[in-house]
């Protein structure tokens, strides 16, 4: 916009002088529209007492739920959540590699038909809501953590494929050229140069995606796809706030542990 307007100086200075006002009006209009459009249900009469019992439940968690050996307790379900996230991320990382090479731009390509189409496919996968995927897989394989694994593994392709393809675009081509100049064929180039060069970045992104997958695996259960989300939604619906408290505590501890573990591993990689 600036380059376009630099041809006629007076107009530019006018725009320069008043553009803050234009932005202010635009932002004000957006906010009036946003606030006016929403119907505020306001506080329910029970909101006060519900909040009080929630706080009470959070302060006095149901410690007996942590482990009772039934396989339906907090520890078992947290482990199941981690298993869903782990398996989903690994599967998705494997599927993402071909997607990434599909979507990665290369100098040889003239019209960017291949990489462009790959990028569009990855964007569509990324935008497709994970919850809907979970519900679709529940119809296919029944409720349970298997549906959660499938949902995580398909949904993560969108983001991992994008990160992987960017890693491929920015990688150092030196090793590849060395193998080519020594007379290597393309499978050899791939196995001996391409893969070793980008592997640390791939692993680092996979670990990062695992952190996100842990969070989504803990809510997929709310629609019936296994993990800690299922008892959570039951506890909220039955207003069992001490149970909600202990599950929240479990999720917080799990996420903090996984995040710091993954961060340590990623620091050692790069």
């Amino acid at each position: 916009m600036q380059a376009m307007m630099s041809n006629n100086k007076p107009h530019l200075s006018l725009w320069r002088r008043w553009n803050w006002l234009v932005w202010l009006i635009v932002v004000a209009v957006i906010y009036v529209w946003a606030i006016g459009g929403l119907q505020f249900t306001g506080l329910q009469e029970s909101a006060g007492s519900v909040s009080k019992s929630i706080v009470h439940g959070l302060v006095n968690p149901d410690w007996k739920y942590v482990y009772n050996g039934s396989g339906e307790d907090l520890v078992s379900l947290i482990l199941q959540t981690l298993a869903i996230a782990f398996l989903g991320t690994i599967i998705s990382a494997l599927i993402s590699v071909p997607f990434a090479f599909w979507a990665a731009r290369s100098e040889k390509e003239h019209y960017r038909l291949r990489s462009g189409s790959g990028k569009i496919v990855l964007t569509l996968i990324r935008t497709f809501p994970e919850i809907v995927l979970a519900i679709m897989f529940i119809k296919a394989v029944g409720p349970g953590s298997y549906a959660g694994v499938l949902a995580v593994s398909i949904h993560s392709i969108g983001m991992l494929g994008k990160l992987f393809s960017e890693a491929i675009e920015n990688m150092d081509r030196g090793a590849e050229e060395a193998i080519v100049s020594a007379g290597g064929n393309s499978p050899q180039v791939f196995m001996l140069a391409t893969l070793p060069t980008i592997m640390p970045e791939f692993i680092s992104y996979t670990l990062y995606r695992f952190e996100i997958a842990v969070r989504s695996a803990s809510i997929l259960g709310m629609v019936g796809a296994g993990g800690i989300g299922t008892p959570m939604i039951f506890a909220i619906q039955t207003r069992n706030w001490p149970r909600v408290g202990i599950i929240l505590l479990g999720i917080v501890v799990m996420v903090l542990l996984i995040d710091s573990l993954s961060e340590q591993l990623r620091k050692r990689l790069i």
Partner: peptide, 21 residues
Amino acid sequence: RTLPDLLLAAIFVAIFGIGST
């Protein structure tokens, strides 16, 4: 930051009732 969004939504629906609030 550890709390997933849908989980917060479930709790706030219990407090504020169903709706955009």
